[in-house]
């Protein structure tokens, strides 16, 4: 309690707004926020399975077992094997294939997003900070490429270059860097006119140092949110392109390719299509939820509201 015998001073007011919250409070709040907790767990699980596929998968990914073909989810095969999500037309365990498929789908998405972010953010920050001709050229390119139908261009380029992991990542880089560039340029424009950058300039900082040490850390939050969303977008695009036969090529297996393969058996074995699609759905959903959450908590007012609702903070006051 504040001593009421003294007049209120401005410092009292400030103290009341600056209750320190540690990371444990954030952890507790996440546990209370079921939706974010779900999204975070799903993404963490996905990362664990992607990295540890060789140890965690219950079966061999290419383990043909012609006696156990087309078993529905939850079946026990003739050899006593348990198939959580059923088997495909060659008797391979669907769950195992999903885990290995995640490797390709997730790494295409993450790699594509990382490269686009690096190129886009660099171009955008330079354009926004330096302005002039550089900005004109970059923004022309960005506006032009953004108004093209990206899936169609991707299809055409992959038709020319041929599919496969590397080309897919390359195409994603070429067709998605603009999204980052546009945002980074806007942020850099704002930052260039801000007091902290003006202060750095007046102290004689070089422009490279200003961009890296002063602007970049301050614009990181919105870029990370966009990055999360872009991973989801790229995983969806990868699925579409692979489904059409222009993305990842067999024997690599991605979720999109698995749906494409399962399509032939859709009348008899729905699970071959349903589960890979659900895997993509939940991945994209979790990434979207995490991005929304991250956007919310980087805003101080919303972070306060989010934390206050879920911690003991409110009660203690």
């Amino acid at each position: 309690m504040v001593d009421l015998s003294k007049p209120l001073s401005p410092t009292d007011v400030d103290e009341s707004r600056q209750v320190q919250l540690g990371w444990t409070d954030y952890m507790r709040a996440i546990l209370q926020d079921y939706i974010t907790f779900f999204a975070l767990s799903f993404v963490l699980l996905l990362i664990v399975f992607t990295l540890g596929a060789d140890f965690l998968a219950p079966h061999e990914p290419t383990g043909l077992n012609l006696r156990d073909r087309m078993l529905p989810p939850g079946s026990i095969g003739r050899g006593g094997d348990f198939y959580l999500l059923g088997t495909d037309e060659l008797g391979r365990d669907l769950f195992t294939r999903l885990i290995y498929g995640a490797r390709v789908s997730v790494s295409v998405g993450v790699l594509g997003a990382v490269l686009s972010a690096i190129v886009g953010v660099t171009a955008g920050l330079m354009a926004g900070y330096h302005g002039g001709l550089l900005e004109d050229i970059v923004m022309r390119l960005v506006d032009g490429m953004l108004s093209l139908p990206s899936l169609l261009v991707a299809l055409f380029v992959l038709f020319i270059l041929g599919g496969g992991f590397g080309n897919l990542v390359l195409v994603f880089l070429v067709l998605h860097w603009m999204v980052f560039a546009r945002m980074a340029r806007g942020l850099a424009l704002d930052a260039r006119n801000s007091a902290y950058v003006q202060a750095a300039v007046s102290q004689g900082c070089k422009s490279g140092r200003i961009i890296l040490r002063h602007i970049l850390p301050n614009v990181m939050a919105p870029i990370l949110v966009l990055f999360t969303l872009e991973i989801a977008v790229l995983i969806l695009s990868e699925a579409s392109l692979s489904f059409l036969g222009f993305g990842v090529q067999p024997p690599d297996a991605s979720w999109g390719l698995m749906i494409s393969g399962g399509r032939e058996h859709i009348r008899s074995a729905w699970w071959l299509v349903a589960f890979p699609g659900l895997a993509i759905f939940f991945t994209a959903l979790s990434l979207n939820l995490l991005a929304n959450w991250a956007r919310a908590i980087t805003d101080p007012v919303q972070r306060w509201r989010w934390l206050a609702k879920r911690t003991k903070f409110r009660k203690s006051k």
Binding site: V2, L4, K6, P7, L8, S9, P10, D12, V13, S16
Partner: peptide, 20 residues
């Protein structure tokens, strides 16, 4: 008028204007 307007969440006991 010395002091600053009161914070409504932390009104002083008794008369609100008392501290000033």
């Amino acid at each position: 008028i010395s002091g600053s307007p009161p914070v409504l969440t932390k009104l002083p006991e008794g008369c609100s204007f008392r501290p000033r």
